[in-house]
Design a protein around this nucleic acid. Structure first.
Length: 495
RNA sequence: GCGGGAGUAACUCAGUUGGUAGAGUCACAGCCUUCCAAGCUGUUGGUCGCGGGUUCGAGUCCCGUCUCCCGCUCCA
């Protein structure tokens, strides 16, 4: 009975409860559920899309309501050369093999790389008997080997004679399978190779290819940024953990173009800004941490890279990456397109390729992090004083899908009429919900589960003096205020 | 992709050696009710994930498949 094991079980129970609540209240449904679902795809329901839109709006405001950041919305389908320039065609394809003996999985290139020269020589002899006998220089072996494995046919032969580093068995590998993480489709009705395009695996490239367009249209001076929210697609080998690893997801990206040499300072600035954003929207600071990519494992384009990670019930998971992408992307697009993407500084008369500081947040992942972070179960006394479990989504009011619920305390004496009037009034300004069924306590709890921050109740005193009670979700405390002041009362708390 | 667990009403779950599918919650209609989920009456809702097979008869047994969860693997 180890502690971590119990914890893991409890944690997965929490995840199950959240998934169940998400479905029941209309936040998230499984995609194509009536057909048995589609692996790793999810739909946002009425409350979910409100919350997601709120989340994206908050991000958009925090990014583009600045003097030096503009927004765009680029096409999901892009010219296929874009993905050659970006490195995705080359690096997004990893041939993999599985060992049938011990069930280990390897990336083929890693497997080949880890082989000793001696083994490589043996492998060469096995696939071509007689040709590599006697003394051969190591350099020649390495060179020949690299040449062979570069071709699919010889690589396949090589796999057949390899032994598994884990269990030592020979010839137990499956055939190498390529996992191209980009979704391929065709432009036009004819499915031939000249018509192949990809669904973008990241939104960033839509920004890079528009760098000069946006810069000149907005007469922008370095440093400046371009922001974008949009869907991206990756054909993941396996999906996992609710919204965390899905094949279709949404990104909120801002690429900030800076003068080389100022990149380190800008990098630190944006790291700080992005962490503040999550905390500012109510995410628990102790559930957030930075993870720096080790220098030897940085992606091909990056000089430095940090991820913001959230502590999900299943462990720490990346919700945003802040990366210094250097001038890699612009240089590559310049090279592949033949168009100059350099920036000319009118003041210093300098011409240079800007460095890029990327802030790339997952909208779907952030949504899930905010949902998980808001979920709480607490003990609250019932009317009879018995302690009961209260499930409440403590969402920041800015993110909450419904801002106000309106109840008549009882359905008589003119209370419904007054409550309906308040509802109609507030509906012009906020997402509201009217509920007159069951005991008022039950109605409060229903709203707690949906994360509604405020509940307005019309009681008998309301009929006398035109005041109502406003009940706050987390504290369950009530304020009595004039019905006429409701709009500003709520608006203040959404600022 | 591998291994383990699971899938029965909108939700949480029962369902005996194979013999006419159930409960609670939710929802809806009405009654009652003056501030934190459990009162009363009634109603809707399921080809038991999907597809085969065995059988007189399958939620139950067998095979396949899909989806979710956990672990590994993967996550430029």
């Amino acid at each position: 009975m180890s502690q971590p094991k119990n914890t893991a079980t409890d944690q997965s129970k929490i995840m199950e409860k959240i998934v169940s609540l998400a479905k029941r209240k209309g936040f998230v449904y499984q995609s194509s559920e009536i057909y048995g679902g589609l692996n790793g795809c999810w739909d946002y329901g009425p409350l979910g899309v409100e919350m997601l839109n709120n989340l994206k709006r908050q991000w958009w405001k925090s990014m583009t309501y600045r003097e030096n950041i503009e927004g765009i919305d680029a096409s999901i389908l892009m010219h296929p050369r874009v993905w050659e320039a970006s490195g995705h065609v080359e690096n997004f394809t990893d041939p993999m093999v599985d060992c049938k003996g011990c069930k280990s999985r390897y990336r083929l290139d890693v497997l080949f790389e880890d082989m000793s020269v001696k083994r490589k020589k043996e492998a060469l002899r096995e696939i071509e008997p007689g040709k590599f006998e006697g003394q051969i220089k190591d350099e020649l072996v390495i060179e020949e080997f690299a040449k062979r494995v570069a071709t699919d046919a010889d690589a396949a032969k090589m796999v057949a004679v390899l032994s598994c580093p884990n269990c030592g068995n020979k010839g137990t590998f499956t055939e190498a399978r390529k996992f191209n993480l980009m979704f391929k489709t065709f432009v036009g009705p004819v499915e031939d190779s000249s018509a192949v395009v990809f669904l973008r695996p990241e939104t960033a490239q839509g920004i890079f290819v528009n760098f000069l367009n946006v810069q000149s249209a907005g007469r922008l001076k370095i440093p400046f940024g371009i922001a974008q929210i949009g869907k991206a697609f990756r054909n993941e080998i396996n999906t996992k953990n609710f919204l965390f690893r899905t094949r279709e997801f949404e990104q909120m990206e801002m690429q900030f173009f800076v003068k080389p040499g100022t990149d380190d300072e800008q990098f630190e600035y944006w790291r700080s800004e992005r962490m503040k954003w999550f905390v500012g929207l109510g995410m628990k600071a102790e559930k957030l941490q930075w993870h720096q990519h080790p220098k030897d494992k940085l992606a091909h384009y990056a000089k430095d890279a940090y991820d913001i990670e959230y502590q999900f019930p299943f462990g720490w998971g990346e919700i945003e990456g802040v990366h210094n992408r250097t001038d890699f992307d612009l240089s590559r697009h310049e090279q592949y397109s033949g168009k100059s993407l350099k920036y000319f500084d009118e003041v210093t008369k300098e011409k240079f390729t800007p460095f890029v500081i990327e802030t790339s947040a997952g909208a779907s992942r952030s949504f899930m992090a905010f949902l998980v972070d808001a979920y709480s179960e607490e003990e609250a006394p019932s009317a009879e004083g018995v302690m009961e479990t209260r499930v409440v989504l403590k969402l920041h009011p800015k993110l909450a899908p419904t801002k106000v619920a309106i109840f008549p305390l009882v359905n008589r004496d003119g209370m419904p009429e007054m409550a309906t009037k308040i509802e109609a009034d507030l509906r012009q300004h906020f997402r509201v919900f009217y509920d007159d069924s069951g005991a008022v306590g039950r109605r409060y709890r229903r709203q707690d589960e949906a994360g509604t921050p405020f509940c307005v109740t019309v009681d008998s005193q309301s009929l006398q003096d035109q005041t109502v009670t406003v009940r706050e979700r987390d504290s369950m405390k009530q304020d009595r205020i004039a019905a006429a002041a409701l709009r500003s009362y709520i608006a203040e708390r959404l600022m």
